[in-house]
């Protein structure tokens, strides 16, 4: 039994906005409506402030290079030249192909193994409770490690495992770096999340595997979606590992290609802004798609009610 998104909205509306509220609560109702309008306005204002710099980049990306330092507000000479430069010199197909491949493998493997680990860390009884919480802290401590400490040893590990020069050279450290982050989110939410439902499932005779994948996982959809989004963004923007571990021009990633572009057109700011816009757009689309999953979680959560 699944409720749709509109059902939920209807349901929430019935509690505060429809006519079912008693007469004497009317002033409260108008106050609420006013508050809703005010908060909407605040939301728009904050969004506008956050977006302003983005609009500035987009404007600059259409400016001829001479204008950027001299007369950036001019709207008369806008041009597509910057985009033509970028499209002409960035290996778009290659860089997106490589990055998507790396991201798909690293993020799916990373999320899967983090999920099972987090499940074990929050839902299973270890013989010693201390071991469980120490393991969690052990993994979470990884959050504090700056990437530059890792470059040299990881390079040697890649050589030792014979994966240097392959996609795995990047995928392995990407998975490793994502584990503490994923664990923080997953264990945090799993602890916040009530376990009665699982108990019910256990009573119904569900095995551990089924419990983990078919009962808990769907309920964690908003969190998993969030993790997927962040991990994909991480892989798209990761630069230090990529610059050390990729030697082959055929294997460039998005961040590597963009940084090379930047190195190559050091003062072509228009070009750089166009490159930034071009890289930003597909990622915004990915976010918008995954975000649907975050919202979808609401309906699942409502089922219980």
């Amino acid at each position: 039994m699944r409720t749709t998104r509109t059902d939920v909205i209807d349901e929430s509306m019935s509690t505060d906005l429809t006519g079912t509220t008693p007469e004497h609560q009317k002033p409260k109702r108008t106050r609420r409506r006013a508050a809703a309008i005010a908060s909407g306005a605040v939301a728009y204002l904050i969004t506008f402030l956050v977006v302003l710099p983005l609009l500035w980049i987009v404007l600059l990306s259409f400016q001829p290079s001479g204008n950027i330092l001299g007369n950036p507000f001019s709207l008369t000479n806008l041009t597509l030249d910057n985009y033509l430069t970028v499209i002409g010199s960035l290996p778009l197909l290659k860089m997106y192909g490589n990055t998507v491949l790396i991201a798909v493998v690293a993020v799916s493997v990373g999320t899967a193994i983090s999920f099972t680990a987090a499940f074990a860390l929050t839902r299973m009884i270890f013989r010693h409770r201390k071991v469980q919480s120490s393991l969690r802290f052990y993994i979470l401590a990884g959050l504090a490690v700056p990437v530059y400490i890792l470059l040299f040893p990881v390079y040697r590990l890649d050589l030792a495992f014979g994966v240097f020069g392959t996609y795995a050279a990047l995928i392995l450290p990407y998975i490793a770096v994502s584990i503490p982050f994923n664990t923080l989110l997953l264990t945090g939410f799993l602890r916040e999340f009530p376990s009665e439902l699982e108990e019910a499932a256990i009573i119904d005779g569900a095995g551990l595997g089924r419990l983990c994948w078919t009962v808990v996982l769907p309920l964690m959809r908003p969190v998993i979606a969030t993790i997927l989004i962040f991990n994909v963004v991480y892989v798209f923007n990761e630069f230090p590992f990529a610059s050390i571990l990729i030697n082959n021009p055929d294997m460039v990633t998005v961040s590597l290609a963009v940084s090379r572009f930047q190195g190559q057109y050091t003062v072509d700011y228009g070009g750089m802004m166009a490159a930034a816009t071009l890289v930003l757009l597909p990622q915004l689309v990915i976010y918008a798609l995954f975000q649907k999953q975050v919202i979808a979680g609401m309906t699942v959560g409502a089922v219980k009610g």
Binding site: I113, M124, V163, T166, I202, L208, G209
Partner: peptide, 29 residues
């Protein structure tokens, strides 16, 4: 309340996860 798991269940999970990782890595190498 939490629950403990059977050894068989754990081994199966582990093997499956290892297999996925190995397969992914193998094809990439």
């Amino acid at each position: 309340m939490s629950f403990s798991i059977t050894t068989a269940g754990r081994a199966r999970r582990l093997a499956a996860a290892a297999l996925v990782t190995a397969a992914a890595m193998g094809s990439l190498v």
